[in-house]
Simulated scan of single mutants.
Amino acid sequence: MSETIDTRALPAVITTYLTVDQARDLDPALACYTDDAVVTDEGRTHRGKHEIRNWLNRAASRYTYTTTLVAAHHVDNEHYVAVHHLQGDFPGGVVDLRLQFTLDGDRIAELVIEP
């Protein structure tokens, strides 16, 4: 069961990641991940920093959109959820995405993105 928290209460690595990802700043975003991290987005799984780098590159160039962090949840000390409201030129134009983070210390070990 998760607890709703203030978005400012998310761990530093998550807030850093969300900030640099929104700025489409690839290297600092990649630095937030563990070497063997896993990202699942749009039904595809990307393993390790090489695949995650490729995914970040594609995601940044595919569509133009704005994001607003609208909610955050604390599941336990390793699991957090950030809810982003996106608006842009992607199919449908508007979506709320749940970014489900699993942390390993001060790095992201897993990220699952789903509506």
Rank of each mutant, 00 (worst) to 15 (best):
V95Y: 03
C32A: 15
V81W: 03
T102D: 06
D41V: 10
M1A: 08
D76Q: 07
T40Y: 09
Y63N: 14
D76I: 08
T67G: 10
D25Y: 04
V112N: 14
Y65L: 14
P11S: 00
L30S: 02
A23N: 13
T45P: 02
T64L: 15
H79D: 02
D36G: 11
L18Q: 09
D21Q: 02
H46S: 05
Y65G: 04
G105K: 12
G93D: 12
T16W: 05
C32S: 15
V39Q: 09
G92Y: 01
Y33F: 15
A59C: 03
H74V: 07
Y80A: 03
S2T: 09
D6V: 08
N57F: 00
V75D: 15
D76W: 06
D6T: 11
L97D: 01
T19E: 14
H46E: 10
T66F: 08
T64F: 05
V94P: 00
G92W: 06
T16V: 02
I14P: 08
T19V: 10
M1V: 09
R24D: 01
R62E: 07
T34I: 09
L99Y: 14
D21A: 09
A71Q: 11
R58E: 15
S2G: 11
D35R: 11
A60R: 10
G48Q: 09
E51I: 12
